[in-house]
Computed example of a mutant assay.
Amino acid sequence: MASNDAKAPYIRLAKKDDFEDLAIMLQKAFIRSPPQSFYARLDKPLTTDPEDASKRKNQFNYLRYLLHRCWAMQARITILVVPTEGHKEIIAGVTIWLPPGVRRPPSLFKSLILPGLVPLLLSWGVGFRKRVYELVSSTESVLKEAYASKKLPGSPADSWYLLLAGTDPEYQGKGYMSKLIRETIEQTGDNAIFTLEANNPKARDVYVKHGFEVVGEVRIGKGSVDDTGILAQGEKAVGFPMYPMIRHGQ
C-alpha cells in the first residue's frame, strides 16, 4: 500500500496513535463544516480567535470521539501522509469508511461511552444526538429509495459507507483526496457498492469524477439554521444541503 519512495506522499491505514494529530488536522479542515456547526448549534461561524477557544475544544472533542467510535466499529481509516525531514509524517488527508453491515455500534460502552460521548452531551447538549439523527435519517431515506429504484442488492447498510473525508487546507488542490478515494475503491473491488453524503457542491463534484451519482438532495435543519449550518430565523433558515450519492459497478 505504501510507496517505496520515502520522500513521496503515501497512503497507509491509521493507527490509534494517529488520532490526536488526525483530530487536529480534521478541525482545520472542518472548522466551518455545516453539519458540525449544526450539531454544536453555533450562532456564528467558528474561528481561530481566542474567544472561540472553548467552542473549538468542543469540536475537537467531537472529532476525537468520532475517530475512537469508528475504530470501535472496525472502520477502514486511511490516511495520506507527507514525509518531512527527520522522518516525521504530516497527515494531509483521511477517509473513514464503514464496511458493509457495520452501521450500528457493537458495544454501547466501547463505541459511545469510552470514546467520549458524555463530555459531548455536556458541551453540546442532549439535543446533539437528535440533530445527528435528523441528518442520518434524512439521507438514509433517500439512499434507500435509490437502492430500490436501481434494484441494488440489500440496502445502503450493505455498502461501503464514507462517513468522513477531509484534507488539511494547506494540502488541498494536490489531488490527495482523489488518491484516498481511489485507494479504497481499488482495495475493495469493482463490484463493491459505495455510499456517502456530500455537504457542499465542491465535494459533490469531486465524488462525481470518481463514479458516484447524486441520487437526491435534502435540506437539514430547515427552520432553524442557514445554508452554512448556523442558527438562523425567518427566510434565512433554509437549512444546509446534503447530497446522498451512490457508486456501484452494476
Rank of each mutant, 00 (worst) to 15 (best):
V206E: 01
R32G: 11
H68E: 11
Q74P: 00
A203P: 09
I181Q: 01
I181Y: 01
V225D: 07
A157N: 14
H210V: 03
K44S: 15
D158H: 08
Y176R: 07
M1Q: 05
P244F: 00
T95Q: 05
S54G: 02
W124G: 09
P119S: 06
L66P: 02
G101D: 01
D227L: 02
L26Y: 04
Y207A: 00
K44L: 11
K15M: 11
G211C: 04
Y65F: 15
W71L: 04
R247I: 00
H248M: 03
G239C: 08
D18F: 12
D52V: 08
A232R: 01
P50F: 04
L112G: 03
F194G: 00
A203D: 08
A146D: 01
S137N: 09
S3Y: 05
L22R: 06
E85V: 14
K150I: 09
D49E: 14
G125K: 04
L108T: 15
T139E: 11
A29K: 09
A232Q: 02
L112F: 10
E20T: 15
S137L: 03
V214C: 13
G249M: 03
H68V: 05
I90N: 14
P153L: 14
D5W: 07
A29C: 07
E134R: 05
P169W: 04
V142K: 07
C70H: 13
R76Q: 10
P169H: 09
Q27N: 09
R76N: 09
E170G: 10
F60D: 03
D158F: 01
D158C: 04
E217M: 15
I193R: 13
G189C: 11
A203W: 02
V225I: 06
P9L: 13
R182W: 00
T47L: 06
L114Q: 12
V126I: 15
E197Q: 10
R247Q: 02
F38V: 07
L117I: 13
G154I: 09
E145C: 12
V118D: 01
G175T: 04
G189T: 09
P115N: 10
Q187H: 04
T95E: 02
K222P: 02
N199Q: 08
Y176F: 15
M177L: 15
A198L: 00
I90C: 14
L13W: 02
Y10R: 10
K236I: 02
A165E: 01
Y147F: 15
L26D: 07
L152P: 04
D52M: 04
K16C: 12
V82S: 07
E145T: 12
K202M: 05
G189R: 10
D227E: 07
R41H: 10
